[in-house]
Amino acid sequence: MTAVRKSLLLHGGLLIVLFGLQFVLPAYHHGNLARIMVLASYAIGYNVLFGYTGLLSLGHAMFFAAGMYGMGLGIRFLEMSPALALLAGLAAGLILALVVGYLALRTVGVAFMIVTLMFAQALFLTILYFGKWTRGDEGFVIQQPERVLWGIDLSDPVNRYFAALLLFAVCLLVSLWLIQRPVGRVLIAIRENQERARMLGYDIFAHKLAAVMISGGISALAGAVYGLLFGYVGATFASVQYSIFPLLWVLLGGAGTVLGPFVGTLFMFYLIDLSSALTTAHMLIAGVVLVAVTLFAQQGIVGELRRRFWRWLP
C-alpha cells in the first residue's frame, strides 16, 4: 500500500469513526467531542503556521476571537443570518491575518513571537475598550433563535455534533491537501531551510503570508463556529491563555503532523476533565504530565508514533 493510500485510509477512517461515535457516545462525552472537534480545528489552523511553516505565534487567540466577534457582532448588531455571520467571522479573521502577517512577517524567531503576542494583546484590550458594544469581559449570549442555520437548530446536540464534525473534516482535509500541494511543500522547505528555499527562487514572503492567512482563516472559522455552537462570545477567548492553548495542543499531539492537533486537543481536554473530577489539584497533574511528555515523547504523541512505527504519517 502506498503512503498516500494509507494516509487516506487513516484520515478517512478517523472521520468515519467520529461520525459513528455520534450514535454510541453517552451525552456527556458526545458534547465534549463536539467541543474538542471545534478546538482541534483551531489547533489545525495553528499547526499550518507553526508545524509546517515553522513560525511560532503567541497571538493566535486574536484570530480565534476575530472570527468569534465578527460572527457575534454581526448577529447582535447587523441581524445577520448565521451563515452570513460565519462568513463575516471568517472575513474578519482573514483581514486581520493579512494586516498582522504583513507587519509581523518582517520579523523571525522570538521577535515574531513577541509581535504576534502584542497584536493579540492589543486586540484583547480593544475588545474591553469598546465594552459598550462587546460587553467587555462579560461578553454576550447568542440566543437560540439566532442560531438556526438553514432551518437547522445548532443548539440541538445532534446538529451541533454534525456541525462540529463538518468543520473538523473540512479543516483536516484542507491541511492534508495543503501539504500534498507544491505550496505546502514550499512551506515545509521554508521551515527546514529558509535560505535554501529562497535560493531555489521561491518568494518566501508571499508563501509565509499565505500560510498566516490560511492559518488565521481556519482559526477564525473555528472561533466563529465555536461561538455559534455554544452560544457565547466573550473576551476571555482573546486572552493570552487562549494563544498558549493551541501551541500546547499542537506540541503535545505532534507539531507538523496532520493528526497531531486533534490528538493533542483530545488528550489535554480529558487530562483536565478527568483530573479535575479526581482532585482539586488538577493543574498539578496537568503540569506533571506536560513535563513527562517533553521528557518521554519528544515529538509529541503522533510525532512519536511516526518516528517509531509509521514513518509514512503525514
Binding site: 462579560e138 461578553g139 454576550f140 449570549v141 440566543q143 443548539s155 457565547y232 466573550g234 473576551a235
Partner: peptide, 14 residues
C-alpha cells in the same frame, strides 16, 4: 464571576 455566568447560562438553558 459574571463572565462565567454568561458563558455557562446558554448551556444550562439548552
Amino acid at each position: 464571576f459574571s463572565h462565567v455566568v454568561f458563558g455557562s447560562a446558554p448551556r444550562a438553558g439548552e
